[in-house]
Design a protein around this nucleic acid. Structure first.
Lengths: 341, 341
DNA sequence: TGTTAGCACTCATATTGTTTGAGTGCTAAT
DNA sequence: ATTAGCACTCAAACAATATGAGTGCTAACA
């Protein structure tokens, strides 16, 4: 059987209608909804074909049809290659007051959630390898030493380290210079025993302090857990099909834990720019098998990128979501470019 | 009518039974449950009295009784003055790997949520007035300047500021010295026009940079939004009485927004140590009128404290919650004391 | 040959009625 | 003061019954 133009039109009509209402859609509705001027009976025949081809199903006999994942997939694919969609008239109020990465990210997540009415999650950029750009020790009070580590991409990490005795300005200066000399430009792998040995040799008696500092540096750089921020997780209650305690609880848990979702967003196949859509069962993780996830990538600099994801029901307004995401990505790129110059 | 010993026993039995089951409890149950050796008929009479006094109600005729907020209140008050409760055998695995405040707090929230099966929220310590302990400017790369501000209580804030031209080591040193001289020990109120004027006078040509830096300092210190971490918010789905989308959504929203809950936790009347219990309608904020909130205070140093709150159903296991909180408070105090010495 | 009207059939949902049982309040006896 | 007994109430569970949206099929039509 062939998927001709008319069938496509009908399928699109079914999906669009279902996206709006969330109710199975019947032949009569489509008969009026489209401008094909066909009777419901004809539509019924076509729908029967579409069902046979696996694009739609009846939740039960004598109900209208709803799209299958395959149906959504076709629809989304059409959407994607179709028009590049008018990005105008959509105004995202991303007012990044501070220039600090995390507040920009939080704001971005919020903007997405508010504009789409779905849940959103954004991850801080993942660096292939964190390299040390700069580090500095400062005596804050007689007992504590502040270590500030700046990684490339201007990620700032700081920690307090306890010391037994106050260090003199001079020692501090010397340590700073020494640490920077040996460590600048290195990533975690490169801080190996030989480097450490060299540092030790030069440290002159502060060996236990040095150990502690190196420890702090290591944990800062490891940062196994990618930072992530969520927003609008309660939006999922707006969609009856997700609104039973079983599903809602699972989803919210995933949004709270963040880990699994992060994995999903960093799924293979799109270390590249681009928008990825996971519809229902297509998702590799359990928590979102009942919904759709759309992810996008924003770039900070070569090889340094983060992800943003939108989590909503299968009958998500894909068009709006994609447009909104594209809009935000360009907004973010803008901000980060400005940041660079 | 008087609330004699027997009535109290019965009331306590009713409440305890209801805490366990969540079902209205009838006279026959109590007749067996207590060791008063009274028939159900007698219990019925007493229950009738208790209802008249406002401690219990029937959700509908021909149902058992459930405690009112007033009933819970009495019960909680008895509990509080009663035994100080055995704190042993409750082991909280609070393994604060890092010494950094926020990871300790996150961990604490999690520990509480896991141990109690309710939702938890913890706020970072609120300082009556943030005072500047130390600040430092560092040139990170030719275009950006790192400002590190340490407030008392060792709160570290950092920001990146863009500069047009690289500053010389010398200038930087001068600026650092100057800023520290003028600003150390001051709180936000005290950084007034006259101080700023003095700084400007000394700044020699860097006036726009100085403005920017002072701006950054101000926003860091304002910190209107108290940082807060939540954990276990999906626990609320475990309690049927909160498990309808209306209530759940409201609660989860409050947990996501955090703002309102923070207000609740910093309610008047307990800037002091101590545990506060809000039962249902007693809560001043809308979102928790259908549940109970127990808050506790942890102290970092004189006048510097944060809050932790547990949010659960009205029929919360108050005893366990209070014990767990006390245990955690002492744990936290321990950590922070160690931190000080 | 594609389209449509008409009709029988299906089945989720809503409505109504019925039963069951836990629980109460009252009264009279202990 | 306590208790046994009984009539009464009412939520919840269940069953029976409409209702109606929607389908598939067939026969007529253009």
């Amino acid at each position: 059987m062939e998927l001709d133009e008319r069938k496509l039109t009908i399928l699109r009509a079914i999906i669009q209608n279902y996206l709006e209402t969330g109710e199975p859609v019947g032949s009569r509705t489509i008969s009026k909804y489209t401008d094909l001027n066909l009777s419901s009976a004809t539509i019924r025949n076509e729908m029967s074909d579409l069902e046979e081809m696996g694009y739609i199903v009846q939740p039960h006999t004598s109900a209208g049809r709803i799209p299958t994942d395959k149906g959504y997939r076709l629809y989304v694919d059409m959407l994607m290659q179709d028009k590049q969609a008018e990005m105008d008239n959509l105004k995202l109020e991303l007012n990044a007051k501070s220039e600090k990465l995390d507040s920009i990210l939080k704001e971005a997540a919020k903007v997405i959630a508010v504009n789409t009415n779905y849940a959103s999650m954004i991850t801080a950029p993942r660096y292939r390898k964190h390299r040390i750009k700069f580090l500095q020790l400062t005596q804050v009070d007689p007992e504590s030493l502040l270590t500030v580590i700046i990684l490339d991409g201007n990620i700032v990490k700081n920690n307090l380290v306890h010391v037994e005795e106050e260090l003199t300005q001079e020692t501090l200066l010397k340590l700073n210079l020494m640490l920077n000399t040996f460590l600048q430009g290195l990533d975690l792998q490169e801080i190996n025993a030989s480097v450490i040995q060299k540092i030790r040799n030069e440290s002159g008696g502060y060996s236990s302090l040095i150990s502690e500092i190196l420890d702090v540096i290591a944990t800062s750089m490891e940062s196994e857990e990618i930072e992530a921020y969520t927003s609008g997780s309660t939006n999922i209650f707006k969609y009856p099909e997700l609104n039973d305690s079983e599903k809602a609880s699972g989803l919210l848990n995933a949004l709270e834990e963040k880990k699994e979702l992060t994995e999903l967003m960093y799924q293979e196949g799109d270390s590249d720019r681009g928008i990825q859509v996971y519809i229902g069962d297509e998702s590799p993780i359990e928590a979102t098998k009942e919904c759709s996830v759309v992810t996008a990538t924003y770039h900070i600099e070569e090889g340094v990128y983060g992800k943003i994801g939108i989590i909503g029901p299968r009958r998500m307004d894909y068009e709006k979501v994609v447009v909104t995401l594209k809009r935000l990505m360009s907004e973010l790129d803008q901000i980060f470019k400005k940041d660079k110059q």
